[in-house]
Design a binder for these strands. Sequence first.
DNA 1: GTCTATATTCTGATAGAC
DNA 2: GTCTATCAGAATATAGAC
Lengths: 173, 173
Amino acid sequence: MPDDRSTRDRLLDAFERLLVSAGSRAATLDAVAAEAGVSKGGLLYHFPSKEALIDGMVERLREQGARDVEKMRAAPQGPVDFYLETSIDTGSDFDRALIAATRLAQEQVQAARAALSDIRDAWFAVLREHVGDEALARTIQLIGDGLYFDDTSGFRDESALQHVKDVLGRLSS
Amino acid sequence: MPDDRSTRDRLLDAFERLLVSAGSRAATLDAVAAEAGVSKGGLLYHFPSKEALIDGMVERLREQGARDVEKMRAAPQGPVDFYLETSIDTGSDFDRALIAATRLAQEQVQAARAALSDIRDAWFAVLREHVGDEALARTIQLIGDGLYFDDTSGFRDESALQHVKDVLGRLSS
DNA sequence: GTCTATATTCTGATAGAC
DNA sequence: GTCTATCAGAATATAGAC
């Protein structure tokens, strides 16, 4: 069995990059192939249809999501700070995949929506367990969603994270 | 000068509805015309290009945004509760326009992005003035963004707003 | 595994009748 | 103001050479 992981992953990377930087209308098969440095025919060998490309991306996202939840659970700074700090785009592969999936979810791609929903449920379970308070856990998740939304919509505010930590600190005192 | 406001607005409504319910890829001129109950030629009489349709939508959004900020300022429950309560999709025309513009902003439509940015700045100014604390004002805006993001991404949580009000109440006591 | 050429359908836009 | 007919180019997908 030949190892074709490399080209496959480069194609998924290119698809995600285009979704993130230019949106779903710009992420055409032509554009993805060009971004990955292969021909359209080359792309269609690995992913026989656009749906297959999407499915491949979502499958990889689920794996990355499972790893992220483990990192969150074991984070030295604790799950809450880890969650908030990684709600801003850190430039990681996982962030890119997450933002790309959000673009697809807004175009009603159900596989993307379901994967995001599952990852969010896993995050919430860790937050809920750690802070021991449902209302606070939900609020923290909402703040993370807000950070994420702003960051991925071009409304980035450098001081946002510090402000949030400040306010959350007042609750503990 | 003939009054063509009615068909014009119906076209903009249809465009927004499609953006919200199906995403930007589905909001084609064909689909918008069909949704508004006119032919493509009819649409192109009012908006000679897709860019003109977008510009028309964004212009209307700015007017709605200015009215919303006034309502927020004068709200009986205060600006904070008004802001949080209307961060969830209330089904209003303004909510629809806002969500539609977010879809366009994520496809790098700069006019949509700029209008959203301006409206957000106006909201923040009212929050900032009312709570008198920058960190708290930013955190409230982030929570609103989180509510909005969840709601428009299909991650709606019925109890989210109550949880937020609960947690914010602890800060005042 | 990757490429070029081609087929098909969709999308934005124009022209001109009514 | 609204419609139908039509066009050029883009988007997804297939076929077959290398």
